[in-house]
Design a protein around this nucleic acid. Sequence first.
DNA 1: CAGTGAGCGAGCTTCCGCTTGACTT
Length: 944
Amino acid sequence: MATGTTSSRPETTSPGRAAGGSRRSGTPTATAAGRPTRRLVIVESGTKAKKIQAYLGKDYVVEASVGHIRDLPRGAADVPAKYKGESWARLGVDVDNQFTPLYIITPEKKGKVAELRDALKTVDELVLATDPDREGEAIAWHLLDTLKPKIPVRRMVFHEISEPAIRAAMENLRDVDHDMVDAQETRRILDRLYGYEVSPVLWKKVMPKLSAGRVQSVATRIIVQRERERMAFVSASYWDIAALLDAGADATPRQFPARLVAVDGTRVATGRDFGSDGALKASAKGKEAARALDEAGARRLAEALQGRAMAVESVESKPYTRKPYPPFMTSTLQQEAGRKLRFSTDRTMRSAQRLYENGYITYLRTDSTTLSESAIQAARQQARDLYGDAYVPAQPRQYNRKVKNAQEAHEAIRPAGEVFRTPGEVANEVDGDDFRLYELIWQRTVASQMADARGTTVSVRIAGTAATGEEVTFAASGRTITFPGFLKAYVETLDEGSDGQADDAESRLPELTKGQDLVAAALTPEGHTTNPPSRYTEPSLIKSLEELGIGRPSTYSSIIKTIQDRGYVWKKGQALVPSWIAFAVIGLLELHFSRLVDYDFTAAMEDELDSIAAGTQGRTDWLSGFYFGAAQGTEGSVARAGGLKKLVGINLEHIDAREINSVPVFDDVVVRVGRYGPYLERVRDGESQRANLPEDLPPDELTPEVAEQLFSVPQEGRSLGVDPVTGHEIVAKEGRFGPYVTEILPEPAEPPAPADGAKTRKKAPAKAKPRTGSLFKSMSIDSVTLDDALKLLSLPRLVGTDPESGEEITAQNGRYGPYLKKGTDSRSLTGEEQLFTVTLEEALEIYKQPKQRGRRAAAATPPLRELGKDSATGQPMVIKDGRFGPYVTDGETNASLRKGDSVEQLTDERASELLAERRAKAPAPKKKAAPARKAPARKKAPAK
DNA sequence: CAGTGAGCGAGCTTCCGCTTGACTT
């Protein structure tokens, strides 16, 4: 059984509460017995523990906590019995009592905690050496609060794993920083409240099992927003002229490309001059307006320029320098491994984890680009050895690029050790993904300490006059790299769809001087179209999240997994494509929880957490503002998002689910997100038309043409073949009540056109109804055969005639499963197959039994197991099997068995506990308003 | 999003950040 504790740490550090902490020095001292002091050092990672153990020697026991050891309960199953009845048990946070969290030892960590307790018995002092960041501080405190050591406890921090760094850290021990722990706890509670309060709104209004959260919802929104831009994008087409100019036989290269940029002093429009609406942008301030060239114009002009003289109008030359990129941190490693090696973030991290565990690279989850002193030296030495002195700058490079919300607990990701091993040196130990990733990390690290690349860029303008009189200007540009510097070791790859140039790309122009004559060797009119912004890929999404300060190095990969697992996003090649469900969910959040999905929500939260960590802001006030509203006069902007609890209540009541699940796409066409996936809907001639949406159709490809096509295909569903008797096509479809088969009836012959429309309406021939039949539970829509379908459509089956009453007995499949029907008298059958096999004799036998209904049916079924008396009521308890699986009852109260309970092993105590919980929860529901049951929002008046 | 006939015990889903191990075949 999990034992939980609610922590009640005051908001400010109170003296005496910090455990241990009276000693000021960490220097090993001797105990009274003369034996040296033994210390237990706890770090977060096992690999790290091993390394530090080697530095510290035998007077130290170094253990790993392996991450967090406690957390809020994940769900009801994790809540200890003692707290189960509490109104806040679902959240795991006592919101009415200072937001006291309920912490339980994470089930998988019980063994680990026991190990740590044992290790603690063998030492004289405990040193908490978890990571020097907010989470690490919290882990330290959780260890303290869980292990409750009786010996002195100190906190140790280090940013780099090397012997001198560890030794120095040992000399600078401190106490646990409770303000920082408060900040972490506040973050944890906010995330819990956000996630566990908003997700249920989605379950009720969109679909069960969906989720919302501070990080995942913004990540999804970014992707949805991009898709909206793509959908709204109107492509523009424009033309220009590509020229191949000839500088004469002596020039190298003799010919070079140039492009038409102006006609009669007016700039020729390029892609950048068009807006997302396909129109030319109005001239920006201080910038001349551009004029778009159309095809006819471009062809005419190219013709008129044939054989005309051209001359160099200007030559502008500028130095080109590029600085190396900083060493990798998690996000940039994921981005570059994605771009260069095409690894998913997940693949990158799995490989990096192996490299880390086997000692090839430093820690893989970091937001720092800092290299240790020895790593800088190692990189410089390696660069010198490989490329020579000229390639290494006199001064070591320091990278202090601050990432938003960076905690910088670790070094950059780099080859491990004081001397880097070259890829060649590790090649026979490491292969596949790991080798390629190591090589990438090695290159980037070495390059980061190399010299700038230097070169020259040249822009040339060339003038000419067309035979028709227009003055034209062409432009050409060149880049030469005279000294590659770091580019020799490493060049960053461009994002997909980016129109930039790689840093090492060169294009040579001949030596040109002003006034020099040129000849156009070729003049080619070229057509272009503007493109919508490209979709996000895993690397580019992570880059955006990082820029917004959302997510942490340890979670980037899981964010992408989460939004895919929830069905918000799917991958098409490298691209992340949002689902229609994501449109519905994000639409809901934007409309009703707008502050929570603001791109700067996390940034604001981080600022305010900083003030909690600094001790200038109280955690309870702040959380109260967020959850109950800012009535307490709290200042923070997150608090002003305010009153989450009330907002959820209002939204549960007022959000119109039908409206939320309708995504307008164009004209009167909407995509509706139903229980069985999205479909198209529109109204034509007063009738609503529907069409299936193929699963793999990206939203931006749903054009009016595609929609028309989909609407024109009436047979949705999978065709199973043709009924040999009727000749009708049989299809399997997904419907409101689940999968079913039906037949496609041929369109009735067009009735003769009425001479006068007035009176002909009422005599419209009744449309024949197609036969339908639900699939059996044993069948699936993908595998059902024509034979199955024909059998299903043959229902109801006439079983025979009751000799007594003369009534027909039929077997059919209904809402509650297979049953027999005789007039208004019906009886359930036990199996679906019985529909086809039950004989008249058997049916009559079934009808001889009294109708089993309600209480009597329950009473008739024998209990699965009998238990002892309930400790509360004294009534005997039994386990029965019901609609929702096994449950325990005392005749009055019923309670389902939970996850982890088994019929065989349920004890009387547990049974009583379940019953007690159930009683506590049920405040005798009177006539609980019906709408909660069935599609609540449908009842509401349509909003339009 | 098809269309048919009861009468009955719900409980669970979900967040973000730290870490990797692993009950078996």
